[in-house]
Design a protein around this nucleic acid. Sequence first.
DNA 1: AAAAAAC
Length: 459
Amino acid sequence: MTFADLGLSDELLKAVTEAGYDTPTPIQAQAIPPVLMMKDIIGIAQTGTGKTASFVLPMIDILAHGRARALMPRSLILEPTRELAAQVAENFEKYGKYHKLSMALLIGGVQMGDQIKALEKGVDVLIATPGRLMDLFQRGKILLNGCNMLVIDEADRMLDMGFIPDIEEICTKLPAQRQTLLFSATMPPVIKKLADRFLSNPKSIEVARPATASTNITQHLVKVDSRKKREALRALLDAQDVQSAVIFCNRKTTVRELNKSLQRHGYRSGEIHGDIDQSSRIAELERFRDGKVNILVASDVAARGLDIKGVSHVFNFDAPWHPDDYVHRIGRTGRAGAKGVAFTFVTNEDAEAIDNIQKLIGTKIAYADLPAGADAPQAEMRGEGRSENRDRKDGRRRDDKRRADGPREDRPREDRPRADRKDSRAVPPPPRRRDAAEDGPDEGWNGPVPEFLSVGFSG
DNA sequence: AAAAAAC
């Protein structure tokens, strides 16, 4: 099965090929043909399955078949967070490079001026978060009666965030005769009702059982004293072969404090949460994507959908209160067939949360011990002759490692010429930003597979 | 118990 088999136009196939993709993911293979046939779709798919391309690609072709330049927007994509909306816009540009389609990214936290200008010029596609869309609509800046294609992405998250009334209202502004695609990782009754009301005779597509974590993520629980979480985290960061990691906390204040603490200890970390203004959020994500920092401390704003390649580890510094969030958080790693590792700190107060998580994912997660000493086991395992460090308990070697200019690159990477790797420990190559050419659409990271430490872990 | 999203 290739993209050419799905009925997409030549221009689109060219853009897809140039982006380096040839094999559609399951959701793409199943969704693209019916979407092209103008059918409504309910897609049950977790993030990391190639969902975005499954609606962006056919949407481009459908729009291309219509009028060349629209007076009114002809399609609308709704996303729960600004970051996700921006990410979809990037995809739209990437795949639409051979089409003369225009789009407007309508999100909060940024000036309205440019968005209004774009709307006045006329755009084909709106990619929006509900708040800003409603705001602009109420100001009379948007006409939605030409919008005969609607995508509601991450519907379950929209529900969590209280957006469902907004979505319902937006739906009533659109023409009744339209194509609607709804994507959700889970299908709670409210979402089902929404779908019944606003979709007509939809085709259901399910590519991963909802609320089950991807099997290529190795999950661990770690018992910690709530006052010693930072130490425990540092020990794990040092003992694990961390390419890059997202560390989730439940509160914004915790995110801030933990990031400061990590930086004080010499780690290259950044932070993202809702109190960070939008331009800094974007900059911070960019720094993480580019590998300028390899640790991102985050609130749940980053839990869902964010597609950052090469995240080898997710740490739940705080166990999430809602089991759904657990699945989404750890889904930032192990994307598109890559391996990932997730650690969740468990304090005495977290028993119920952990119980709910295990119920939701349907398996028990094994407990791992904290590494006895922060160094050695990996080098020992891989026989890389670091024995001189093995017995040091004074933390010196750890410090050395932390102060390195970049992430450690001890193991050969398939995607880099060997010459590059040679002295990578001294001057690490730019870590994760790889050419899209090696990934599946929207996805992917076929890079180094983190080697899971069994030494020092009981789980 | 929090976070997110419009100004």
